[in-house]
Amino acid sequence: MFSWCTDPDTLEGLAWLSCYLTTGKHMAFYRSFGTVMVLLLVTAPVALAFGFAGAMAARAHFAPLRWLGKGYTAVVRGVPDIAFFLFFVIALDQGIEYLRHKIKCPDWSEPIRQGNDFVVCPAAKMPLSSAPQWVHETYGFALAVVTFAIVFGAFAANVLYGGMRAVPRAQMETAEAYGMSRRQAFWRIMVPQMWVYALPGLGNLWMILIKATPLLFLLGIEDIVYWARELGGSKTSAFAYPHPDWRLYYFLALLVFYLLLTRVSEIVLDRLMARLAHGQATSGAKSGGRAADKGLAI
């Protein structure tokens, strides 16, 4: 990176550190912070869409659809999220390969599950074994995004369902009195109003989503946890920059990163809530997040 970094053995002190922290692997480490942010920014809207669909299904008049919506939220919430992450990554992968296998190799006679193996024809592999490395990485990342969206979609469905129910009944009755159909009343009256009721829950969900991102490591993505373990492990003199076990410091850096991320989110969400609740007849507007100050002093 810098001009003085050509021979690491002769360096000392800050010069050594400046070179050490700008090696190619460290650059990959810094880029993986971007991976986390991309995951957050992609997953949040997708999960919100899943949640909206789930909440609509849970409100449906058609009973099987309603059961599906309620069952989706109930099961995902009753089981540890990490179990879902581990499950969906394999299940989605096998499901996609199974479908491709059925389409691309219709005359394949052998069974797909052979004892402890899952065998599909080579043309159905996803991604193809000849595909370049970035396709494999992108595919893995996409699977992770879908998995996160499924799990957090269930949480979001629950929050949005609550938000829809919190819209005052009189609002919907007024809409009906004006001759709106169910669909019109839903889209024009309920949906615009539900957000302010759902926002505290959604904000909470965003915080949980931030704190779930290190689980990417378990899905086989080269994320910040992967690089922290990789770079922090003790390096012998065979390496250009030998050092003892520094994983503790790398994880401290990750801790600080997450603390900053959650703190900034908290401040932004508080501001947003105060703005949205302005003039609304919700408890958020009445106390404006300063409810705690009104309590007793013990």
């Binding site: 931030i210 704190k211 779930a212 991102t213 290190p214 689980l215 490591f217 946890v225 922290a228 373990r229 922090g232 076990d245 994983r247 503790l248 994880f251 401290l252 990750l254 801790l255 997450y258 603390l259 959650t262 703190r263």
Partner: peptide
Amino acid sequence: FVFRGSPLFIQFFLFYEA
């Protein structure tokens, strides 16, 4: 703030290394 603001997963790693 520290324990609620950071992921439990990272806390496990951090404490284990410590």
